[in-house]
Write a protein that binds this DNA or RNA. Structure first.
Length: 424
RNA sequence: GGAGGGGUGGCUGAGUGGCCGAAAGCACUGGUCUUGAAAACCAGCGAUUCGUGAGGAUCCCAGGGUUCGAAUCCCUGCCCCUCCGCCA
C-alpha cells in the first residue's frame, strides 16, 4: 500500500506516476472521499471527546456522593449521535481503503516506459546460445525417453497442467532443488527456511495477492474460513515479519526456501499448454530479503546476481531484462526478469523475477525495524526473487545440454547431486 | 474429540467497571561518577492518527454486545498452554 499521507498530499502527482504502470487512479473520487472523511472524523472525535469528559464527571460525582441523574440526562442523546457519526466514518474509511488497497506500487524512475513485454529493456546477456549439428528435441520429447515425463498420468490423476516425473528426470528435478538451496545457503549467505504451503487471507493481503488477484489462487475451504495454496514462497516467508519489529542488529534478514507453488493460471488458458513451462503446480526456490530502506536497491542487484549465479553454474545462457512500467507487477517498484534460452522455442523464457517492493508490502504488513538512530520503529523494505523456478530450469537443462542420441549432459556443478553422473 | 488455563507496551509481567495508555522489572536513550568501560545512581522511554499549536481521538488477540463509562462484565471467532483420547 502507498503511504496514505503522501497520496493525500499530492493525488495528482501520484496519479501521474501510476500512469507509467497503466493504472488510472481515481483522483476526483479519492479527493471527495478524503474531504468527507476529514469532516466526519473531526465530528466523531469531538463527540467522543464530549462523551469522555461527561462520563468522567459522572464518575467524580458518583464518588462524591452527588446526585448523578441530571448528568445522565445530559448525555442521553449523545450516544445516538456518536453511533451515527461512527457508522458513517466506517463507511467512508471502507471506501477509501478499497481504493488504496487496489492501487499498485509506484514505479521507480529507472523503470522504462512501456506497455508490455515488447518494451522491456535488456540489461545484459551471458553464455552462448547452443548450436546443434542435429535436430534438437524439445523437453517433452526428451522427457519421454524412458517415460521420464508423463503428462497423461498426471491428467488422469488430476487434470491438465500437471505432470508426473519419473526416474532420472525426477532425480534431476530434485537435484536442482538441492543444488539451488545449497548455493544460496553456502555462497550467498541465506538462511534456509521451511514454511506452510497453505496460508490465510491476512498473509495474502500482506504481500498483495489479495484482494485484487483472488482468481489466480487455489482456495481451500477449512471450517468457517478459507486457506489458500501458496502461489509462491514469497507469501509465507515475507509474512514472517508481519506485525513484527525487527532489531536493527538482526538486519538484513535473508531467507531462502524451497516450496511448491500453485497457480490457477486463470488468465492464461491456451498459453503454453504443452509441456512443463506453465503448470498449476511447480517447484521454486525463492530468495527473500528484509532490509533497511537505504539498502534495498543494492539488495536488488545482489539478489539478481545470486539468481544469475545459479544459471552460470548450470551453464545455461540467459539475459537480464528491466521490466517496463506496463509489465511491472502490482507490488513492485522495479523488477529484473531473468530469461533463460529455450532452444525448442528459439527464444528466451522467464525463469526468475526479482523485485524490490520498497515499503509497499511492509506497510500492508506493519513490518518494521527499530532504527537505533531515532529509537523509533520504521517500515522496512522487502524484496523477493526466484532463484530459480525449478520446472523451467529443468526444461532449459534438458534442451540446452542434449546430445544427438537424446542423452543429457549433467553440468559439473550438478554432478555431486546426481551421484556423480556426467550424463543421463 | 473431551476437560481445564491463558492472550496486556521491544520482552517479562501486575491490573479493583470510572483516579489506567496502563504498576514493576528487563532492554534501550541521556546524564553523574570513571583514564575508559562495567557497576551504582539520576532522568527519559509504547504505537497509530487529526491539528500550525495547545491539545484531541484510537489501540490492552479479533469482531460483536451490556453501560453514561470497558483492559476489566457477556457472546462469538482465532491463537497459545496443560491433562486425557486418537494419530503421520
Amino acid at each position: 500500500m502507498l503511504d496514505p499521507k503522501i497520496v493525500r498530499a499530492n493525488p495528482e502527482d501520484i496519479a501521474a506516476q501510476l500512469l507509467k504502470k497503466k493504472y488510472v487512479f481515481p483522483v476526483e473520487t479519492f479527493k471527495a472521499l478524503e474531504e468527507q472523511r476529514r469532516e466526519v472524523q473531526v465530528n466523531t472525535e469531538n463527540l467522543q471527546s464530549e462523551r469522555n469528559t461527561q462520563s468522567k464527571s459522572i464518575g467524580k460525582a458518583k464518588a462524591a456522593g452527588d446526585d448523578i441523574a441530571p448528568l445522565l440526562a445530559q448525555v442521553s442523546n449523545l450516544g445516538a449521535q456518536l453511533e451515527e457519526a461512527k457508522a458513517s466514518l466506517v463507511e467512508i474509511n471502507t471506501k477509501l481503503d478499497d481504493i488504496l488497497l487496489g492501487v499498485p506500487n509506484l514505479p521507480d524512475p529507472e523503470v522504462p516506459e512501456g506497455v508490455d513485454e515488447e518494451d522491456n529493456v535488456e540489461v545484459r546477456r551471458w553464455g552462448t546460445i547452443p548450436s546443434f549439428d542435429f535436430d534438437p528435441l524439445d523437453h517433452i520429447e526428451l522427457g519421454n525417453r524412458e517415460k521420464g515425463m508423463d503428462f497423461e498420468s498426471a491428467a488422469k490423476i488430476t487434470g491438465a497442467r500437471f505432470v508426473v516425473l519419473r526416474g532420472k528426470i525426477a532425480r534431476m528435478h530434485r537435484a536442482l532443488i538441492q543444488f539451488m538451496l545449497d548455493t544460496h545457503i553456502n555462497d550467498h549467505g541465506y538462511e534456509e527456511i521451511y514454511v506452510p504451503y497453505m496460508v490465510n487471507k491476512e498473509s495474502l493481503m500482506g504481500t498483495s495477492q489479495l484482494p485484487k488477484f483472488e482468481e489466480d489462487l487455489f482456495k481451500v475451504p477449512f471450517g468457517e474460513r478459507d486457506y489458500y495454496m501458496i502461489p509462491t514462497a514469497e507469501v509465507p516467508v515475507t509474512n514472517m515479519v508481519r506485525d513484527e519489529i525487527i532489531d536493527e542488529a538482526d538486519m538484513p534478514l535473508k531467507f531462502t526456501a524451497h516450496t511448491p507453488c500453485f497457480r490457477s493460471e486463470a488468465g492464461a488458458s491456451g498459453r503454453d499448454t504443452r509441456g512443463l513451462i506453465r503448470q498449476h503446480q511447480f517447484e521454486k526456490v525463492e530468495m527473500i530479503q528484509m532490509v533497511k530502506p537505504e539498502d534495498s536497491w543494492q539488495a536488488l542487484e545482489d539478489m539478481t546476481s545470486h539468481a544469475e549465479n545459479i544459471l552460470k553454474k548450470l551453464e545455461l545462457p540467459y539475459r537480464v531484462i528491466n521490466l517496463c512500467g506496463g509489465d511491472l507487477g502490482f507490488a513492485a517498484a522495479k523488477t529484473y526478469d531473468i530469461e533463460v534460452w529455450v532452444p525448442a522455442q528459439d527464444k528466451y523464457r522467464e525463469i526468475s523475477s526479482i523485485s524490490n517492493t520498497l515499503d509497499f508490502q511492509a506497510r500492508r504488513m506493519k513490518a518494521r525495524w527499530r532504527n537505533s538512530q531515532t529509537g523509533k520503529p520504521e517500515l522496512l523494505h522487502t524484496l523477493n526473487g526466484s532463484g530459480l523456478a525449478v520446472g523451467r530450469t529443468l526444461v532449459a537443462l534438458l534442451e540446452n545440454h542434449q546430445n544427438a542420441d537424446g542423452s543429457i549432459n549433467v553440468p559439473v556443478a550438478l554432478q555431486p547431486y546426481m551421484g556423480g553422473l556426467t550424463a543421463i
